[in-house]
Simulated assay, not measured.
Amino acid sequence: MESREPFTRVDQEKHPTLLEISTWMKQGSRLTAGFTSRIGGVSEKPFDSLNCGLHVLDRPEDVVCNRQRLASAISIPLDRCTYAEQVHGNDVVVVTSDNQGKGHAIREEAIQDTDGMITNESGIALCMMYADCVPLFFWDPSKRVIGVSHAGWKGSVLDIAGATVAKMNAVYGSEPQHIQAAIGPSIGGCCYEVDERIANQVTQHYESLQIQGISTNDILLPSEHIGKYMLNLKLFNQAMLLKAGIVSSHIEVSGLCTSCHTDLFFSHRKEHGQTGRMVAWMAMKES
Protein backbone atom coordinates (compact mmCIF):
# COMPACT_ATOMS: atom_id res chain seq x y z
CA MET A 1 0.00 0.00 0.00
CA GLU A 2 1.10 3.53 -0.68
CA SER A 3 1.85 5.56 2.45
CA ARG A 4 0.59 8.77 0.82
CA GLU A 5 -3.18 9.07 0.34
CA PRO A 6 -3.72 9.83 -3.38
CA PHE A 7 -7.36 10.90 -2.96
CA THR A 8 -7.62 14.48 -1.69
CA ARG A 9 -10.81 15.65 0.00
CA VAL A 10 -12.27 18.78 -1.57
CA ASP A 11 -14.97 20.79 0.20
CA GLN A 12 -16.35 23.65 -1.87
CA GLU A 13 -19.27 25.91 -1.12
CA LYS A 14 -22.41 24.96 -3.07
CA HIS A 15 -20.80 21.69 -4.23
CA PRO A 16 -20.78 18.18 -2.76
CA THR A 17 -17.73 16.88 -0.92
CA LEU A 18 -15.49 15.05 -3.40
CA LEU A 19 -12.22 13.13 -3.25
CA GLU A 20 -10.02 13.97 -6.23
CA ILE A 21 -6.95 12.19 -7.62
CA SER A 22 -5.05 15.41 -7.25
CA THR A 23 -1.70 14.22 -8.67
CA TRP A 24 -3.34 13.17 -11.93
CA MET A 25 -5.32 16.38 -12.24
CA LYS A 26 -2.13 18.39 -11.83
CA GLN A 27 -0.53 16.41 -14.67
CA GLY A 28 -3.42 16.94 -17.07
CA SER A 29 -5.00 20.36 -16.68
CA ARG A 30 -8.23 19.19 -18.36
CA LEU A 31 -8.41 15.85 -16.55
CA THR A 32 -10.93 15.36 -13.75
CA ALA A 33 -11.01 12.14 -11.74
CA GLY A 34 -12.13 11.06 -8.32
CA PHE A 35 -14.71 9.58 -5.99
CA THR A 36 -17.82 11.07 -4.43
CA SER A 37 -18.53 11.07 -0.72
CA ARG A 38 -21.96 10.77 0.88
CA ILE A 39 -21.92 14.49 1.76
CA GLY A 40 -23.63 17.32 -0.06
CA GLY A 41 -26.77 15.85 -1.61
CA VAL A 42 -30.53 15.96 -1.12
CA SER A 43 -31.44 12.32 -0.38
CA GLU A 44 -33.06 11.43 2.93
CA LYS A 45 -32.11 8.61 5.32
CA PRO A 46 -30.90 5.92 4.88
CA PHE A 47 -29.55 7.35 1.61
CA ASP A 48 -28.36 10.62 3.13
CA SER A 49 -27.34 12.55 1.37
CA LEU A 50 -25.38 12.29 -1.90
CA ASN A 51 -26.76 8.95 -3.09
CA CYS A 52 -26.11 8.52 -6.81
CA GLY A 53 -27.67 5.07 -7.27
CA LEU A 54 -31.03 4.78 -9.00
CA HIS A 55 -31.40 1.12 -7.95
CA VAL A 56 -31.54 1.47 -4.14
CA LEU A 57 -35.17 2.54 -3.61
CA ASP A 58 -34.27 6.20 -3.16
CA ARG A 59 -36.49 8.84 -4.79
CA PRO A 60 -35.38 8.98 -8.46
CA GLU A 61 -35.74 12.76 -8.59
CA ASP A 62 -33.39 13.08 -5.60
CA VAL A 63 -30.83 10.80 -7.24
CA VAL A 64 -30.90 12.80 -10.47
CA CYS A 65 -30.51 15.99 -8.46
CA ASN A 66 -27.45 14.49 -6.74
CA ARG A 67 -25.99 13.45 -10.08
CA GLN A 68 -26.56 16.97 -11.37
CA ARG A 69 -24.65 18.32 -8.37
CA LEU A 70 -21.72 16.07 -9.24
CA ALA A 71 -21.88 17.09 -12.90
CA SER A 72 -21.84 20.77 -11.95
CA ALA A 73 -18.91 20.26 -9.58
CA ILE A 74 -16.77 18.61 -12.28
CA SER A 75 -17.98 20.97 -15.05
CA ILE A 76 -19.38 18.23 -17.30
CA PRO A 77 -23.01 18.46 -18.51
CA LEU A 78 -25.23 15.84 -16.90
CA ASP A 79 -26.34 14.52 -20.29
CA ARG A 80 -22.71 13.66 -21.04
CA CYS A 81 -22.23 11.72 -17.80
CA THR A 82 -22.38 8.04 -18.74
CA TYR A 83 -23.60 5.33 -16.38
CA ALA A 84 -23.58 1.53 -16.63
CA GLU A 85 -25.75 -1.25 -15.24
CA GLN A 86 -23.07 -3.13 -13.31
CA VAL A 87 -23.26 -6.93 -12.92
CA HIS A 88 -19.96 -7.92 -11.20
CA GLY A 89 -18.55 -9.13 -14.52
CA ASN A 90 -15.57 -8.23 -16.70
CA ASP A 91 -17.10 -6.65 -19.80
CA VAL A 92 -15.59 -3.30 -20.81
CA VAL A 93 -17.41 -0.91 -23.15
CA VAL A 94 -16.02 1.87 -25.33
CA VAL A 95 -17.90 5.14 -24.77
CA THR A 96 -18.14 7.59 -27.67
CA SER A 97 -20.39 10.46 -28.73
CA ASP A 98 -22.86 7.79 -29.88
CA ASN A 99 -23.54 6.35 -26.42
CA GLN A 100 -22.43 9.16 -24.12
CA GLY A 101 -24.85 10.13 -21.37
CA LYS A 102 -26.54 6.73 -21.21
CA GLY A 103 -28.37 6.13 -17.94
CA HIS A 104 -27.74 9.57 -16.47
CA ALA A 105 -31.41 10.03 -15.52
CA ILE A 106 -33.13 6.70 -16.24
CA ARG A 107 -31.69 3.42 -14.96
CA GLU A 108 -33.08 1.31 -17.80
CA GLU A 109 -31.20 3.44 -20.32
CA ALA A 110 -27.77 2.77 -18.78
CA ILE A 111 -25.17 0.76 -20.71
CA GLN A 112 -26.15 -2.79 -19.83
CA ASP A 113 -24.10 -5.62 -18.30
CA THR A 114 -20.95 -3.53 -17.99
CA ASP A 115 -18.31 -3.17 -15.28
CA GLY A 116 -15.75 -1.10 -17.15
CA MET A 117 -15.80 1.88 -19.52
CA ILE A 118 -13.05 3.53 -21.55
CA THR A 119 -12.89 6.52 -23.90
CA ASN A 120 -10.48 8.85 -25.67
CA GLU A 121 -13.09 11.53 -26.31
CA SER A 122 -13.13 14.80 -24.40
CA GLY A 123 -16.24 16.06 -22.68
CA ILE A 124 -17.53 12.61 -21.69
CA ALA A 125 -17.65 11.57 -18.03
CA LEU A 126 -17.38 7.87 -17.19
CA CYS A 127 -19.38 7.19 -14.02
CA MET A 128 -19.60 3.93 -12.08
CA MET A 129 -21.18 3.23 -8.68
CA TYR A 130 -19.87 1.70 -5.46
CA ALA A 131 -20.68 1.03 -1.83
CA ASP A 132 -17.67 -1.11 -0.76
CA CYS A 133 -16.45 -2.59 -4.07
CA VAL A 134 -13.14 -1.38 -5.51
CA PRO A 135 -13.09 1.55 -7.95
CA LEU A 136 -10.30 1.25 -10.53
CA PHE A 137 -9.12 4.28 -12.50
CA PHE A 138 -6.94 4.22 -15.62
CA TRP A 139 -5.14 7.10 -17.35
CA ASP A 140 -2.89 6.87 -20.38
CA PRO A 141 -1.39 10.35 -20.83
CA SER A 142 0.47 9.23 -23.95
CA LYS A 143 -2.64 8.24 -25.95
CA ARG A 144 -5.03 10.38 -23.87
CA VAL A 145 -7.26 7.48 -22.91
CA ILE A 146 -9.21 7.11 -19.66
CA GLY A 147 -11.05 4.25 -18.02
CA VAL A 148 -13.06 3.38 -14.90
CA SER A 149 -13.90 -0.12 -13.68
CA HIS A 150 -15.85 -1.75 -10.85
CA ALA A 151 -14.29 -4.66 -8.96
CA GLY A 152 -16.16 -6.63 -6.33
CA TRP A 153 -14.77 -10.02 -5.39
CA LYS A 154 -16.39 -11.65 -8.43
CA GLY A 155 -15.11 -9.02 -10.84
CA SER A 156 -11.68 -9.23 -9.25
CA VAL A 157 -11.54 -12.99 -9.81
CA LEU A 158 -12.73 -12.41 -13.39
CA ASP A 159 -9.87 -9.88 -13.76
CA ILE A 160 -11.82 -6.75 -14.66
CA ALA A 161 -8.54 -4.87 -14.10
CA GLY A 162 -6.71 -6.84 -16.79
CA ALA A 163 -9.73 -6.72 -19.09
CA THR A 164 -9.74 -2.92 -18.93
CA VAL A 165 -6.04 -2.67 -19.76
CA ALA A 166 -6.48 -5.15 -22.63
CA LYS A 167 -9.39 -3.15 -24.05
CA MET A 168 -7.42 0.11 -23.86
CA ASN A 169 -4.61 -1.59 -25.76
CA ALA A 170 -6.84 -3.23 -28.37
CA VAL A 171 -8.96 -0.18 -29.14
CA TYR A 172 -6.57 2.74 -28.63
CA GLY A 173 -3.09 1.20 -28.66
CA SER A 174 -2.38 2.05 -25.03
CA GLU A 175 0.77 0.30 -23.82
CA PRO A 176 0.47 -1.06 -20.25
CA GLN A 177 3.78 0.49 -19.21
CA HIS A 178 2.40 3.94 -20.07
CA ILE A 179 -0.88 3.50 -18.18
CA GLN A 180 -1.30 4.97 -14.72
CA ALA A 181 -3.79 3.29 -12.37
CA ALA A 182 -5.46 4.23 -9.12
CA ILE A 183 -7.34 2.07 -6.63
CA GLY A 184 -9.95 4.14 -4.85
CA PRO A 185 -11.65 4.01 -1.44
CA SER A 186 -13.35 0.67 -0.80
CA ILE A 187 -13.87 -1.82 1.99
CA GLY A 188 -10.48 -2.76 3.41
CA GLY A 189 -8.96 -6.01 4.55
CA CYS A 190 -9.66 -4.74 8.05
CA CYS A 191 -13.43 -5.11 7.54
CA TYR A 192 -14.13 -7.46 4.61
CA GLU A 193 -14.81 -10.86 6.15
CA VAL A 194 -15.66 -13.66 3.69
CA ASP A 195 -16.56 -17.33 4.00
CA GLU A 196 -14.62 -20.36 2.78
CA ARG A 197 -16.57 -20.49 -0.50
CA ILE A 198 -15.31 -17.07 -1.56
CA ALA A 199 -11.86 -17.62 -0.02
CA ASN A 200 -11.44 -20.86 -1.98
CA GLN A 201 -12.37 -19.20 -5.28
CA VAL A 202 -9.94 -16.35 -4.64
CA THR A 203 -7.19 -18.80 -3.67
CA GLN A 204 -7.67 -21.13 -6.64
CA HIS A 205 -7.71 -18.26 -9.12
CA TYR A 206 -4.85 -16.30 -7.60
CA GLU A 207 -2.45 -19.20 -7.08
CA SER A 208 -2.83 -20.18 -10.73
CA LEU A 209 -1.47 -16.78 -11.79
CA GLN A 210 1.88 -17.06 -9.98
CA ILE A 211 2.27 -13.31 -9.48
CA GLN A 212 5.62 -12.35 -8.01
CA GLY A 213 5.83 -10.34 -4.79
CA ILE A 214 2.25 -10.68 -3.53
CA SER A 215 1.17 -14.05 -2.12
CA THR A 216 -2.27 -15.47 -1.37
CA ASN A 217 -1.40 -15.15 2.32
CA ASP A 218 -1.05 -11.40 1.82
CA ILE A 219 -4.51 -11.15 0.25
CA LEU A 220 -6.38 -13.54 2.57
CA LEU A 221 -5.80 -13.53 6.32
CA PRO A 222 -7.54 -15.77 8.90
CA SER A 223 -10.44 -14.10 10.66
CA GLU A 224 -11.11 -14.36 14.38
CA HIS A 225 -14.18 -16.40 13.38
CA ILE A 226 -13.75 -20.07 12.45
CA GLY A 227 -14.10 -20.71 8.73
CA LYS A 228 -13.88 -17.01 7.88
CA TYR A 229 -11.17 -14.92 6.24
CA MET A 230 -10.33 -11.24 5.81
CA LEU A 231 -10.04 -10.42 2.10
CA ASN A 232 -7.90 -7.50 0.93
CA LEU A 233 -9.55 -6.62 -2.38
CA LYS A 234 -7.34 -3.58 -2.93
CA LEU A 235 -4.17 -5.69 -2.77
CA PHE A 236 -5.80 -8.35 -4.97
CA ASN A 237 -6.49 -5.74 -7.65
CA GLN A 238 -3.06 -4.20 -7.24
CA ALA A 239 -1.63 -7.62 -8.10
CA MET A 240 -3.92 -7.92 -11.13
CA LEU A 241 -2.78 -4.51 -12.37
CA LEU A 242 0.83 -5.63 -12.07
CA LYS A 243 0.01 -8.82 -13.96
CA ALA A 244 -1.56 -6.69 -16.70
CA GLY A 245 1.78 -4.95 -17.18
CA ILE A 246 1.25 -1.70 -15.30
CA VAL A 247 4.43 -0.51 -13.60
CA SER A 248 4.38 -0.64 -9.81
CA SER A 249 5.34 3.03 -9.51
CA HIS A 250 2.32 3.92 -11.70
CA ILE A 251 -0.21 2.43 -9.27
CA GLU A 252 -1.79 4.66 -6.58
CA VAL A 253 -3.69 2.97 -3.75
CA SER A 254 -6.12 4.68 -1.39
CA GLY A 255 -5.87 3.74 2.27
CA LEU A 256 -9.47 4.77 2.96
CA CYS A 257 -11.91 2.04 4.02
CA THR A 258 -15.58 2.67 3.24
CA SER A 259 -16.71 0.47 6.14
CA CYS A 260 -14.50 2.29 8.66
CA HIS A 261 -15.67 5.73 7.52
CA THR A 262 -19.46 5.71 7.15
CA ASP A 263 -19.40 9.38 8.11
CA LEU A 264 -17.84 9.98 4.70
CA PHE A 265 -18.88 6.96 2.59
CA PHE A 266 -21.76 4.58 2.04
CA SER A 267 -20.98 0.97 3.04
CA HIS A 268 -23.23 -1.88 1.91
CA ARG A 269 -21.61 -4.24 4.41
CA LYS A 270 -21.53 -1.92 7.43
CA GLU A 271 -25.05 -0.54 6.81
CA HIS A 272 -26.63 -3.93 6.11
CA GLY A 273 -27.58 -3.15 2.52
CA GLN A 274 -29.72 -0.11 3.37
CA THR A 275 -27.55 2.64 1.97
CA GLY A 276 -26.68 4.72 -1.07
CA ARG A 277 -23.95 4.62 -3.70
CA MET A 278 -20.85 6.67 -4.46
CA VAL A 279 -19.61 7.43 -7.97
CA ALA A 280 -16.13 7.04 -9.39
CA TRP A 281 -15.88 9.54 -12.23
CA MET A 282 -13.32 10.38 -14.84
CA ALA A 283 -13.37 12.79 -17.78
CA MET A 284 -11.18 14.87 -20.03
CA LYS A 285 -12.70 18.34 -20.24
CA GLU A 286 -13.00 20.03 -23.61
CA SER A 287 -10.61 22.92 -24.23
Results as ranks from 00 to 15, higher is better:
Glu207Gly: 02
Gly276Tyr: 03
Leu57Ile: 07
Gly40Pro: 07
Glu61Trp: 12
Val148Asn: 11
His225Tyr: 14
Gly40Asp: 05
Asn66Asp: 03
Gln238Asn: 09
Met1Asp: 05
Asp195Arg: 01
Met168Asn: 05
Glu193Lys: 01
Gly34Trp: 05
Asp132Pro: 00
Thr17Glu: 10
Ala283Tyr: 04
Val56Tyr: 07
Val247Tyr: 00
Asp195Asn: 14
Glu109Gln: 14
Thr23Lys: 14
Asp48Met: 07
Ile39Thr: 02
Cys81Val: 08
Cys257Ile: 15
Gln212Met: 03
Ala170Glu: 15
Ile219Arg: 09
Cys52Ala: 03
Ser186Thr: 14
His178Arg: 03
Gly213Glu: 12
Lys228Glu: 13
Ala244Gly: 05
Cys81Ile: 07
Phe47Asn: 03
Asp263Gln: 10
Glu13Asp: 14
Met284Val: 09
Gly89Val: 13
Pro185Thr: 15
Ile124Trp: 00
Asn169Cys: 11
Lys234Trp: 12
Ala181Trp: 11
Ala170Pro: 00
Thr262Val: 14
Arg30Lys: 15
Met282Pro: 00
Leu231Asp: 02
Ala105Leu: 07
Val247Gln: 09
Asp132Gly: 03
Phe137Glu: 12
Val165Trp: 12
Glu121Asn: 06
Ala110Asp: 00
Ile211Arg: 11
Asp113Ile: 15
Val148Glu: 13
Arg277His: 06
Cys127Asn: 13
Met117Asp: 03
His104Ile: 03
Ser122Ala: 14
Gly276Pro: 01
His55Gly: 00
Thr119Met: 07
Pro16Cys: 06
Ser267Phe: 09
Val165Glu: 12
Gln210Phe: 09
Met1Asn: 06
Val145Gln: 01
Phe265Cys: 04
His225Ser: 12
Arg4Lys: 15
Ala73Pro: 01
Thr23Ile: 15
Tyr130Ala: 01
Arg69Pro: 02
Asp113Pro: 01
Trp153Tyr: 15
Phe137Asp: 12
Met117Arg: 04
His261Gly: 00
His250Asp: 13
Asn237Tyr: 02
Arg59Tyr: 12
